[in-house]
Amino acid sequence: MKVQVNRTVVDIFDGARAQHAVLRYLVHRRLSQALLKQGRIQDAYGHEIGLDAPLHEGQIIKFKV
């Protein structure tokens, strides 16, 4: 399924959680995976969501450090 992290669309397995999409984004952007634990993930409404938050096709999330 395709999920948008910041401005990047990542293709990730069905059933992936927020942390998986962000990990793929970090690897894709050649950033350290350690940032995952330092940043905050938000949904399209700007609410914080957990690392284990389930994702759905087309979902937009934001990752901020």
Partner: peptide
């Protein structure tokens, strides 16, 4: 595992 599936770009 889900971690590997995520990081293997």
């Amino acid at each position: 595992n889900s971690y590997t599936a995520a990081i293997a770009n």
